[in-house]
Amino acid sequence: MRCPFCAHEDSQVKDSRPTEDSAAIRRRRQCESCGARFTTFERVQLREVTVIKSGGKRDPFNRAKLDQSVALACRKRGIAQERLDQLVSGIQRRVETLGESEISSAMIGEMVMDGLRQLDSVAYIRFASVYRDFAEPKDFEDFASAIQEAGGRNADKA
């Protein structure tokens, strides 16, 4: 593993342990050249998946982008990092087990929306505002009203 500080090719694993959700292995490493310590994560990748963007551009599926989007939507919401990791791992697993080598970014966006809807309503609205490209305050109002109405209907069923 290349050192992120000096770019030396060799590092020594000092400690390995599973992450909280057991979806990855966390490794503490030390560079053999400069002595710096850093952490890496090893995850299972079931298949290579290509994401088809709305403009037709194709990019490899990137878990880091998904992590970043979810983290941004949940910023300052007091949601445990473990729950965010579980959400992202679940979406990644669904993407990789669909059996398709290509998936639309819209489908991934809907998976994120479904996960955030169950996790936190404010994070859900934040993500939706970017994903659905809200242009004016009325768009927020309409979306929030629809969520409140759905919540009321679900409460009536309980």
Rank of each mutant, 00 (worst) to 15 (best):
M107G: 00
L98K: 00
E100C: 01
S101Y: 00
M111D: 12
G115C: 03
V95L: 06
Q148Y: 11
L66H: 03
L72W: 00
I52S: 02
S129Q: 07
D120Y: 10
A135V: 09
I147K: 12
M113W: 10
A80V: 04
R77D: 13
T50R: 09
K57R: 14
E96L: 04
Q68G: 02
S89Y: 05
R153L: 13
K138M: 10
L72D: 09
Q118G: 10
D142H: 13
I91T: 05
K76C: 04
N62T: 06
V51A: 04
A80Q: 06
D114M: 04
K65P: 12
G115E: 10
V88P: 01
I125S: 06
V51Y: 09
Q81K: 12
A64G: 10
A64H: 11
G56C: 05
Q86H: 08
E100R: 15
F61Y: 14
L116S: 11
E82C: 01
D142C: 11
D133S: 15
L119Q: 12
S89A: 15
Y124C: 04
M111I: 01
S54R: 13
N62H: 09
L116D: 13
A123N: 08
G78I: 02
E110W: 13
I103F: 00
Y124P: 08
R93G: 08
E102K: 03
A155W: 00
R93D: 13
A155Q: 13
D114P: 03
M107E: 15
A135P: 00
R132G: 14
T97R: 08
G99A: 08
E102R: 06
E141C: 00
L116F: 06
D139E: 10
G99S: 04
V51W: 07
K53H: 07
R126W: 10
E149A: 05
D139I: 02
E96V: 01
R93P: 00
S54A: 14
K53L: 06
C74Q: 07
P60G: 11
V112A: 03
F61P: 03
D114Q: 13
C74M: 13
L72Y: 01
F61K: 01
R63Q: 13
I103D: 00
M107A: 11
A144N: 08
V88F: 10
D114V: 10
K138V: 09
C74D: 10
V112N: 04
A135L: 11
V95H: 03
I52D: 02
E102Y: 05
M113A: 14
V88C: 05
A80K: 09
R132C: 14
N154S: 15
A64I: 04
S54I: 07
D67L: 02
A155N: 11
R132V: 08
V88Q: 03
R83Q: 12
D133V: 11
R58I: 01
F127H: 05
A128C: 08
S89T: 05
A144D: 15
R75G: 01
F61I: 01
I52E: 06
A144Y: 15
D120T: 07
C74R: 02
I125G: 07
F140M: 05
V95K: 05
S145T: 07
Y131L: 04
V122P: 09
E102S: 09
D142P: 02
S89P: 04
A64Y: 12
F140V: 03
I108Y: 00
N154G: 07
E96T: 05
E96S: 05
Q118F: 07
F143A: 12
V95D: 04
S69Q: 12
